[in-house]
């Protein structure tokens, strides 16, 4: 276990180092960033002051070295557009994004797992088949299309839900639904398949033979073994949610979160913000993946950590 953890941490560090390096040099490819933020018609003196202010005077390698040194002290530069430390700008946005993602995770689990198990156990019934059809449609619908159509129907036509902001619970309804739909649909399909695999196992016949009620069989044997398979898929979903799902939804519903911040930063070429954003999200993804591997090993005794590292 210890060996596994150390290996994983070393691997995480290497990954993040490569990400920092590639992103740093990539953002320097397009020339001096000052020209984008300052615009034209800037006199030479203010231009050179701005360049000094953002620490862009030295050659790229010196800047890179300074960036790496700053990182160890928690310094990631100043935002071009807000003229404040990047970390400060970023930190304000973390809360709303976590709320949105948390809501989506909760909704996905609460809806998808019971629906998937149901669709497998009663697989020949009409209602189970309609669940699968809905899941198929949901999976094929891009979340920004769903979000836009929902806005059209609920905010403009029926006028029952607010279109932007996050002050009341009603504000959460559309963004969370639009964000979770793809994941709900995908998880229903996985849960159904996992449950079907479990339903064919011999130990269920044994459980029934010893007089267990059908309900108990489902909850104690089927559900528990299904969850092992579902867990690994769910981990992938969480990373997808963190990294990409929220970006579009936040922009559509004017949600002041990280996704919205990064889209604005990309439009305005606010490189320090983008750079930190990519690094932070990559770090989150790597950490989550490691946690999932550990959780997976804890839940399923058949997985031995040492064996999976190679």
């Amino acid at each position: 276990m210890l060996r596994f953890l150390i290996l994983r941490i070393v691997k995480m560090a290497i990954t993040l180092f490569v990400v920092v390096t590639v992103v740093f040099f990539a953002t320097r490819l397009s020339g001096n960033a000052i020209d984008f933020i300052a615009g034209e018609g800037l006199d030479a003196q203010s231009r050179s002051e701005l360049i000094a202010y953002y620490g862009l005077r030295e050659d790229v390698l010196t800047q890179y070295w300074r960036y790496l040194r700053g990182m160890t002290e928690g310094e990631f530069g100043l935002s071009f557009t807000e003229r404040r430390p990047v970390t400060q700008v970023f930190w304000e946005r973390v809360g709303p994004t976590l709320q949105l993602i948390g809501g989506a995770i909760l909704m996905t689990l609460v809806v998808a797992i019971p629906a998937g198990v149901f669709a497998a156990v009663r697989r020949r019934s009409t209602s189970a088949q309609s669940v699968m059809t809905l899941a198929f449609l949901g999976y094929a619908t891009p979340n920004f299309v769903l979000a836009t159509l929902m806005l059209l129907v609920f905010s403009y036509w029926l006028q029952i839900l607010p279109s932007a902001g996050n002050s009341t619970w009603a504000h959460y309804l559309m963004p969370v639904t639009a964000l979770s739909l793809t994941y709900i649909a995908a998880l229903i399909r996985y849960t159904r398949n996992a449950t079907l695999d479990v339903l064919g196992q011999d130990y269920l016949r044994t459980a029934r033979a010893k007089g267990m009620s059908e309900r108990e069989v489902i909850v104690r044997h089927v559900l528990r073994n299904t969850l092992i398979t579902v867990l690994s898929v769910f981990g992938l979903m969480v990373t997808a949610l963190v990294s990409s799902g929220a970006v579009v939804i936040e922009s559509i519903f004017s949600w002041r979160g990280i996704g919205d911040l990064l889209v604005r930063a990309a439009i305005r070429r606010d490189y320090p913000v983008l750079q930190f954003g990519v690094l932070a999200v990559a770090a989150a993804v790597v950490v989550i993946n490691t946690l999932i591997d550990i959780a997976y090993a804890l839940v399923d005794p058949r997985v031995r950590l040492g064996a999976r590292v190679s």
Binding site: T15, S244, V278, V281, V285, V286
Partner: peptide, 10 residues
Amino acid sequence: AVPFTLLALL
């Protein structure tokens, strides 16, 4: 580790 969407934004 670097998601598709972020790479594209960048």
